[in-house]
Design a protein around this nucleic acid. Structure first.
Lengths: 253, 253
DNA sequence: CATAAAATTTTCGTTTTCGAACATTTTCTA
DNA sequence: TAGAAAATGTTCGAAAACGAAAATTTTATG
């Protein structure tokens, strides 16, 4: 195996395992420890891994690995499927709002394939992900950062959002009642979401099936304000008829 | 097989395999290594593949460093030492501004030991780190997110910052001239930093020694506006005298 | 805190790969 | 088909990658 190939593989294997010793890597690539050290130092210089005595560790990109991020793992498959479907709905060069929610972070990752997007968001994780692409214009709302989930919330945030008129909004929520009420836990987030709803042409609701019977406190909006609802499950029949009445396009993956 | 055909095929096979050695390609096309080298160099010039010693890799599977990642890896030890010292200067329950910069992200990590801080920042990474603590109040400025480093910049950002009056500002910069001029690369960031300087009681400058002779374009501020300067090296004597004249406390780690 | 063990850096010689220059063959075109 | 242009092959000094051994630093342990 050539050096370039090995370097690439080391980055992946270290990222995957979290930590690799020189010895383990020696066995894997059948080169001397000396060569491995040179490789690891090269990669550390480039900021790809973190060098330690005896081996190397992956870099936690300061925005990952927060306790909150672990919640992202729940229902991962459903969320990924939803995210991919949502990404298909968004054309290149579109402008969109993205609000808080784990599903929305995965949506952000999927949107990296697009080009020329303009995104206004109150989700610092989504902003961080999307700002990796040079041809995206990412605008983050100002305000207080909620400690659990990196959401930016409050009245100042709502005012900020209201400056914009976007093509789409992609909204995640905490709960859905069968009568079509969309619920959240935090009234400050609700204000922001309402502003996004009011200032986007086409509103896309994303939610995995676990939201159907989840209790939440604050009424955020109503299904009648939504244009498209992407979900991984069949909705309760009462909700289905509410959607039908209001011309909501329901996409089940 | 003709050259054009071969070139086309090489691109595909490299993309498919991720990496191909000269030797493998020699066998595949039955030409001399020299010819393959010419081919690979041609393709690399056109940006179709990535050339390496012994072969070539596809563009995607590149281990190239983003400039930002690299900068973060540079001087890691100095930055950590500076960050720890800065954290000591900040009392519990203080309010502070934090601006852009890799050192400031490490400062944010160190501040997690504190209690009851109120932080206003235009650095999404710092915001993300600090928002992990429930007893912190983290406020992020709104505005456009710069793709290289997650900095939030611009006039709207400055206006946002100006709403606040804080105890401290922790400022990272791009360059320091010996006459005491503090420099940055981006005028949009400069506006934000100036606002922080003007609205904090006590201004702390953080910089590792590499900043002393770095050229940067925009004058951001002057050393006379700084109260405390934390650095890992001795400053040039001219700068030392400027600091003395202006009652700047210089802390060398 | 002193010592040993482990890991790392440094140095140096060997092998592999590279690139430039020139020779030869193939392809194109008038 | 003659001549030019492009592609390929050959040769050789330079550069890069690698392994081995010595010198140095870091870490563990009594």
């Amino acid at each position: 195996m050539k050096q370039a190939q090995r370097l690439y593989d080391i980055v992946n294997v270290v990222k995957e395992q979290g930590y690799m010793t020189i010895e383990e890597l020696t066995k894997r690539y059948e080169v001397t420890p000396q060569t491995l050290r040179r490789d690891l130092n090269t990669l550390a210089d480039k900021g790809k891994i973190k060098r330690h005595h005896g081996g190397a560790a992956s870099i936690e990109s300061s925005i990952e690995n927060t306790p909150y991020q672990q919640r992202k793992a729940e229902n991962q498959n459903a969320k990924l499927a939803i995210a991919k479907r949502v990404a298909q709905l968004i054309p290149n060069n579109a402008s969109l709002f993205i609000n808080i929610g784990t599903t929305n972070e995965i949506v952000a990752e999927q949107l990296l394939q697009h080009q020329g997007l303009t995104v206004v968001t109150n989700n610092i994780y989504a902003a961080s992900i999307l700002s990796q692409k040079q041809d995206f214009s990412v605008i983050i709302a100002g305000g207080e950062v909620r400690f659990q989930d990196g959401g930016i919330i409050g009245e100042a945030t709502r005012d900020f959002i209201q400056q914009f008129r976007m093509d789409f909004s992609i909204l995640g929520i905490s709960g859905i009642e069968s009568n079509g009420a969309l619920l959240d836990f935090d009234f400050r987030e609700v204000k922001v979401s309402q502003a996004m709803l009011a200032h986007a042409q086409h509103n896309i609701l994303v939610a995995d099936g676990s939201k159907f019977h989840r209790q939440a406190m604050v009424e955020q909006a109503h299904m009648s304000q939504i244009n498209t609802f992407v979900c991984d499950r069949e909705a309760p029949s009462e909700l289905m008829s509410v959607m039908k009445q209001n011309d909501v396009r329901f996409i089940k993956i």
